[in-house]
Nucleic acid binder design. Structure first.
Lengths: 341, 341
DNA sequence: TTGAAAGCGCTAACAG
DNA sequence: CTGTTAGCGCTTTCAA
């Protein structure tokens, strides 16, 4: 029982009685060969179980055959659904999705990725990356996803962060709140800035003004939400509601508040942002702004493929978000079934 | 300002005044060239910003330059940490991690992946795949991760599912339980079978015998946990504790039981398996078996690289799990701080 | 509609 | 230690 090596295009050509060029054409553009030729070639392909060597094709075509996604932390489940959307959209074009975690290997490793021979395009999900990494002439087309890097000019596909934050404020206003605080993310983060703008827009629309001492800052971690709770409780004049820049902080904040005997939403209503899975399992369930992550991933790929094909690409694609009202603002009697949202 | 095309090895060679072979050697095996040559080559590399064309190298070396992970659902956060571990381990060897979601493209797409020119190795995380897909002579080395495909012979890297289940039983026994039920996964699933074996081992060790009507079955979904709760409540003679085959089912079960007025763990203690993020945020927090997912990912890569290098590979690598006791068995007074585990 | 032939850019024998 | 050389397997002109 001999171990047969992979069939090459030459073998297929010989068996089908045609040239390698014809085999290649039959496979990549069947319409330009005659019916008869096509049949014999396809038969030979099947007989030999031929499949084109990817490296050779890529070399000849001067392409990489895949797209690289750079994420700050693959273990963060926020990214997994975005990656799923990307994978889905790329599969349709038979392009590989290569993923890299930017926290490993350092920038010396990363700079290697900014190379047309490694990837036909880059999907950047990490805003802390140095724009200089992608400044070389050899860098493939880029799309920034969700977060934005200040000095890096490229199309961006982002959630409607401002709109989402404004919707959260509007929701609280509708429930009668006028004393609304904010727990923001790091000030230099693009998400924070957009959500900040949306928060102010929502407040303005309701004729409310933010108060400086009601503006708390965290770093998107649960822990920072917890410490923010202490600062909130120390305020001489407490707000009746707080809008957090992400669900993790909201979660840490809520659990600390509850442990201090605060009733949510009775004493303080809480809203988050992102709609991570956790949010609908907290007690109380968390009102938050849902980002259609899978769609964001798909759209980012769509824009990237356009850019790769040299088409015009929107500089900024904004994907709408939807507010998901849950118990942390509505109260426990509402939506008590965990399956409800 | 002309757009300079990428430097090729020829350009570097010319500038450094050496042959292309020497440039190649300098880059891949610096020790075999003279100090002086090395310096001038590296200078030329820097000057031209040269980076080797990946497709050409792969073609010449007859390799793919990356490893492919096949996961059933990338959006499932269970996988994200495993992928992170894989990415980490592969980065050290400068191999790409290509990910594909097996639910897209169907098997016609998938079969293309079982090809040495596409991937130097396969990490299979989906046990529902047809072993025939990987039967071709051209299929690269495979490592199965977490789940196991019956008819596919290859090294496997799995959690100690049996040990974990046995530990859960032992934990309940230690708390005084003797009436222990089980909510199992689908019977044909490899995880279910191992956890089943562990459950029985744990029961045997305590001198307990399982009861047929205390053996419930689900499909790993929250919803199936919910319906299992109804069956549990309908039993004429209820158990005092239940071991679930994963956290999702345990979560669905718990929420349904609580809504029926059952106290957990007072009336029924509940244990899960996997330690997904959610588990420490449920009310009560869920006692479960932790799988070191990142380590599993790293280990799978280690085994795969060994197999690629032609070394002997353990047919089965079992990664230990640890029981994480939380409120769903210990009671609310214990570990009430969400940060505790 | 098809074939011949030229390379894509690199690495690894081999020879010096 | 270094250069010459022969491809890796494919696609795509160009010519017929």
């Amino acid at each position: 029982m001999r171990q047969e090596r992979a069939a090459r295009i030459k073998d297929v050509a010989r068996i089908a009685g045609v040239s390698t060029a014809t085999v290649s054409r039959t496979l990549s553009n069947p319409d330009i060969v005659s019916e008869e030729t096509r049949r014999s070639v396809l038969a030979a392909v099947k007989a030999t179980r031929y499949s084109a060597n990817v490296a050779a094709r890529n070399l000849r075509r001067q392409q990489a055959g895949g797209v690289l996604a750079l994420a700050p932390n693959l273990a963060n489940p926020f990214f997994s659904e975005i990656l799923a959307g990307m994978s889905e959209a790329l599969a349709e074009r038979r392009l590989n999705l290569i993923v890299a975690d930017t926290q490993f290997g350092g920038s010396s490793q990363l700079v290697q990725y900014a190379d047309r021979s490694r990837a036909d395009g880059l999907l950047i999900l990490d805003s802390r990356l140095d724009p200089a990494l992608f400044a070389g002439a050899q860098c493939p087309p880029i799309v920034q996803v969700c977060e934005e890097i200040e000095g890096l000019q490229s199309p961006r596909v982002v959630a409607d962060n401002a709109g989402g934050a404004a919707a959260a404020v509007a929701h609280l206003v509708e429930l009668g709140h006028t004393r609304i605080a904010r727990l923001a993310g790091p000030p230099d983060n693009s998400l924070t800035r957009w959500r900040d703008a949306g928060f102010r827009r929502g407040m303005d629309a309701a004729g409310l003004s933010g108060r400086g001492d009601w503006h708390l800052t965290g770093d998107f971690s649960m822990e920072s939400g917890r410490t923010a709770a202490a600062r909130l409780l120390a305020l001489p004049d407490r707000p009746s509601a707080i809008v957090c820049d992400n669900d993790e902080m909201a979660c840490g904040l809520m659990s600390a508040l509850i442990r201090s005997g605060i009733d949510i939403p009775g004493d303080i209503a809480v809203a988050g942002f992102d709609d991570i899975e956790l949010s609908r399992h907290l007690t109380p369930t968390l009102t938050t702004v849902h980002q259609p992550r899978r769609r964001i991933g798909r759209e980012a790929v769509r824009q990237l493929l356009l850019a790769i094909d040299g088409a015009d690409v929107a500089e900024r694609t904004v994907i709408p978000c939807t507010l998901v009202p849950r118990q942390s603002t509505l109260g426990r009697e509402a939506l008590s079934d965990q399956a409800a949202s």
